[in-house]
């Protein structure tokens, strides 16, 4: 059965013009793509490739020069679609004079939520993003990471069906970044659709089902992450530790099948994994040193 499209973009072109109406830059050129319900979709591309422009066009913050956009079955300019959308902007453009509770209460009011609903939802989200100890502090006193967290909380205030995240891990430390990615996966598991744009490829690879790669406003690649990354002409084997003799035997067997061993060695963890393990151990055993001190080494 065909999965329902949450976002449909057809031949979308956006040209930025100057005050006199002269063309300044073509930010998007004939972009067409669909985002299906329940998937995590990544928009990738270098700076200036049109990711944020696409996101703003989806939200009706910018108007298309040409083409059509349908979000949740409604035109992008229709305000009523926003009832089911959550948006985390690239920078967390929040009101710096409000504290976390006031911020969430304010955005809750914009959804006509009752005071009780707002209070419950604010408490849930503050806990979710880990800002319990800073709930009464004005946002101007927040670090960038904390601002991203409260930004995410405001995007989720209405328990949206479609969540648009613009550079969601930007400004977050590896721990925060991991939390964000875990949250995205959790949202997907709850049946929500997530569209994120990022130039941090590892983040996208970790969480996205499908991606689109943009360059200079044009769509260059579109498909499932696994499919796009799969090397069709190579095979990967992962074994327990092999002796040099065993490696030589493997090479002999491969030669029999007209194949050769391209690379062998010990697999490495990602730096992110190492960092997270170290932090986790530190939390479990505070005060314990994992690396010998300089004096102990000597």
């Amino acid at each position: 059965m065909e999965t329902q499209s949450v976002i449909q973009i057809k031949n979308l072109t956006k040209i930025y013009r100057d005050f006199w109406g002269r063309k300044k830059v073509r930010a998007l050129n004939s972009l067409s793509l669909d985002v299906k319900k329940g998937e995590v979709f990544g928009l990738l591309g270098p700076n200036g490739s049109g990711k944020t422009t696409t996101m703003k066009l989806l939200l009706g913050l910018l108007f298309p020069t040409e083409g059509e956009i349908t979000v949740l079955g409604k035109p992008a300019s229709d305000v009523s679609k926003n009832e089911w959308i959550g948006y985390l902007p690239e920078e967390s453009y929040l009101y710096r004079f409000l504290n976390a509770e006031e911020t969430l209460d304010f955005y809750g009011r914009l959804f006509d939520m009752s005071p009780q609903q707002r209070k419950e939802r604010s408490n849930q989200l503050i806990e979710l993003v880990g800002l319990q100890n800073a709930r009464k502090r004005q946002l101007k006193e927040y670090s960038k990471g904390m601002t991203r967290r409260i930004g995410l909380a405001q995007a989720l205030i209405n328990n949206p069906d479609l969540i648009l995240l613009d550079e969601p891990t930007s400004g977050l430390d590896p721990l925060g970044s991991r939390d964000m990615k875990d949250l995205i996966v959790k949202l997907k598991n709850e049946g929500k659709t997530v569209v994120m744009c990022s130039h941090l490829l590892a983040d996208v690879q970790d969480v996205c089902d499908r991606i689109a790669i943009l360059y200079a406003g044009e769509l260059k690649e579109l498909g499932r992450v696994d499919d796009l990354l799969k090397e069709q002409h190579e095979t990967e084997l992962l074994t327990s530790k092999l002796s040099p003799e065993a490696v030589a035997d493997v090479e002999a067997v491969l030669a029999k099948h007209n194949a050769k061993l391209l690379r062998h060695g010990h697999p490495t963890n990602s730096l992110e994994d190492l960092f997270l393990k170290t932090v986790q151990k530190s939390q479990e055993r505070p005060g314990q040193r994992f690396v010998p001190a300089a004096s102990e080494k000597s």
């Binding site: 939200l59 913050l61 305000v79 926003n82 959308i85 453009y93 914009l110 959804f111």
Partner: peptide, 14 residues
């Protein structure tokens, strides 16, 4: 200017 309006107009605010 500071784009805080983006977080408002992307809610169901007319």
């Amino acid at each position: 200017r500071v784009r805080s309006i983006h977080t408002v107009v992307t809610k169901p605010v007319r």
